[in-house]
């Protein structure tokens, strides 16, 4: 084992970590906002159809193809090149981030929808019958229960998006995987280098798992036999 090589490689790959985290966190924030909007849209019939079609398309196609379509495909449209967004859509960073946001929104909107649907009808009725306004029911009953229910599935989505950021290395972004690929083409020590990259992703996943277990325990103590 060549420890110096490993240590050097880690140091090099960690330079890509800020970009990986930047993409992951912004994709989650953007995706969650869009997912919330998609769920609110579902109140109307047309909105519901649009949201369903959106989810169908973005869950039904590979993220890699979504990235390519945005990065290589959009430039093919004249109006995109004329538009205000072109300075952004020309940049691989913004294309990659946009693809991640759109993809994350599709999955997150389904997770959120599942959470909302799992709220017992009786709990909502008990709120209404005690004289609460619709807003108070939402704030005190529906959302707290929905978010608690959605949390385990959502933590999977967080891990999934953090790993998915690796795909934007295909459009020249130098996040952890991008740096690894560049290093491989220089040194041809693929196994060692990708192993180092994998360890970094594993550590991130572990962190998220721990964090979500902690939040879950705080939010739903009755499921863990914790006495308040």
């Amino acid at each position: 084992m060549d420890f110096d090589f490993f240590a050097g490689m880690f140091a090099q790959l960690l330079m890509g970590l800020p970009l990986t985290l930047n993409l992951g966190i912004l994709a989650l924030l953007g995706g969650f906002s869009l997912a919330l909007a998609l769920n609110l849209m579902r109140a109307t019939r047309i909105g519901n159809a649009v949201a369903s079609a959106y989810v169908f398309v973005f869950r039904g196609t590979p993220l890699l193809i979504q990235i390519f379509m945005i990065y290589y495909g959009l430039a093919g449209f004249g109006f995109v090149r004329q538009s205000f967004f072109w300075p952004f859509l020309r940049e691989p960073y913004w294309c990659g981030l946009l693809a991640l946001i759109l993809n994350d929104a599709a999955y997150t909107s389904e997770i959120l929808r599942g959470g909302l649907r799992s709220v017992p009808k009786g709990a909502v009725e008990a709120g209404r019958v005690s004289g609460m306004t619709r807003f108070t029911v939402l704030r005190r009953i529906t959302l707290p229960i929905a978010i608690r229910q959605a949390l385990p599935a959502y933590s999977n989505e967080v891990i999934s998006i953090l790993k998915s950021t690796a795909l934007v290395s295909t459009i020249t972004l130098m996040e952890v995987t991008g740096i690894a690929r560049a290093a491989v083409s220089e040194t041809w020590r693929a196994v060692e280098i990708f192993l180092c990259a994998a360890v970094i992703y594993l550590a991130l996943s572990l962190l998220v798992t721990r964090l979500s277990a902690w939040v879950e325990r705080r939010l739903s103590p009755w499921q863990f036999g914790v006495t308040p």
Partner: peptide
């Protein structure tokens, strides 16, 4: 509703 109490067949306590 504020002047009524309602007790459901399935209790409907708030689980959280």
């Amino acid at each position: 509703r504020g002047h009524l109490g309602f007790v459901f067949q399935n209790f409907n306590l708030w689980p959280h």
